[in-house]
């Protein structure tokens, strides 16, 4: 039970959203500066728990995704060797590396007129690749060692402030399925803004915790209690999971989040309106069916009188996503 665990953290670094968050009064927001200092304390705590615990931090910047830190030392900065006897040295390297690489990136965004959407998907996939690599190297190197038991017990933590981007539905779903396959738990901390449908599904499908932070000033306590326990110990300590999950999907044609959609009978692609030819698998649907579906449409979804959110669907199955 007491084995090292790996944590990959994805930080949402959308400047616009952080500015909004800092200005928000109800609920009281938190500045990026405060957030980062609390985050560093959390990351230190993860390393403090066990010497062999590993950590990777990814920054989702507007339009790009960057690895900010990894404990295997792939990110190096030119911080001077400091001789501070008051701090545990790994903490010091961790903190200074993350801070300087964030500052470096953020400086280059000053004065941009329109902010590109953040590279959340890029971060997720990079984190998954990183975990996959650590697992495979751990397996190959530990053939003589502890065997498969030496695997790293990995998890991903997404700290998000931006709203859903419906255009990223398919890649996010694909990331979730890879995470399930790799047995990676995805935890989500929503620090600011409305509920994030896709991330909610990510946490639900991988057995992670989804926490909507209501008091941002107590963020550290939220993180310590919900995200610090390694998956192995969550059998003993309960972490918050969701009681209701929004399972809505985004359609493949307009990337709109739909409540009722039309599904291709061959490849299970989702569309918000009946289409003659499936855009994914090129299946042609008979004209008659199309006609019937079009006729049935107003009945299924009366315009202007949209049904409320779908009821709680426990164990609901989501439509597998295909590259659109």
């Amino acid at each position: 039970m007491d084995k090292p665990s790996h944590l990959s953290v994805v930080i949402d670094l959308s400047l616009t959203q952080w500015t909004l968050c800092a200005q928000s009064t109800n609920p009281p927001g938190i500045t990026l500066q405060d957030f980062l200092s609390q985050l560093l304390a959390f990351l230190n705590a993860h390393i403090a728990c066990k010497d062999e615990n590993t950590l990777a931090v990814f920054g989702a910047f507007p339009g790009q995704s960057v690895m900010l830190y990894s404990s295997t030392g792939e990110v190096t900065t030119t911080t001077a060797e400091s001789t501070d006897a008051n701090t545990y040295r790994p903490f010091r390297t961790l903190d200074s590396t993350i801070m300087s690489s964030i500052a470096e990136r953020l400086d280059s965004y000053d004065g941009m007129t329109e902010e590109a959407p953040i590279g959340l998907v890029g971060c997720l996939t990079k984190a998954l690749c990183y975990i996959n690599r650590t697992i495979t190297t751990a397996l190959s190197s530990s053939q003589g060692g502890e065997g498969a038991a030496a695997s790293v017990d990995p998890r991903i933590l997404v700290l998000s402030v931006s709203p859903d981007q419906s255009s990223t539905y398919i890649p996010i779903m694909n990331s979730i399925f890879s995470a399930q396959k790799l047995k990676v738990t995805i935890d989500v901390g929503k620090i600011f803004g409305a509920e994030n449908v896709f991330l909610q599904q990510a946490a639900h499908l991988t057995g992670g915790a989804y926490v909507q932070v209501e008091r941002a000033d107590a963020l550290l306590q939220y993180m310590m209690m919900s995200f610090l326990p390694a998956p192995a110990i969550r059998q003993l300590i309960s972490v918050p999971t969701q009681d209701r999950v929004d399972f809505r999907a985004a359609c493949f044609c307009h990337k709109r989040i739909v409540e009722i959609g039309f599904v291709c009978s061959v490849c299970l692609s989702i569309f918000c309106q009946p289409v003659p030819v499936c855009s994914t698998c090129r299946t042609k649907f008979p004209m008659k069916t199309l006609q019937r579906l079009r006729d049935a449409r107003p009945l299924a979804a009366p315009p202007g009188n949209a049904p409320p959110r779908p009821p709680v669907q426990k164990n609901g199955t989501t439509t597998p996503a295909r590259p659109g």
């Binding site: 705590a45 001789t83 006897a85 008051n86 701090t87 545990y88 903190d95």
Partner: peptide, 17 residues
């Protein structure tokens, strides 16, 4: 203090120049 750093205890060992 150990987690946040700082203080003046010098308990993590003084490196030599």
């Amino acid at each position: 203090q150990a987690i946040t750093g700082g203080g003046s205890s010098g308990s993590f060992g003084v490196l030599t120049e």
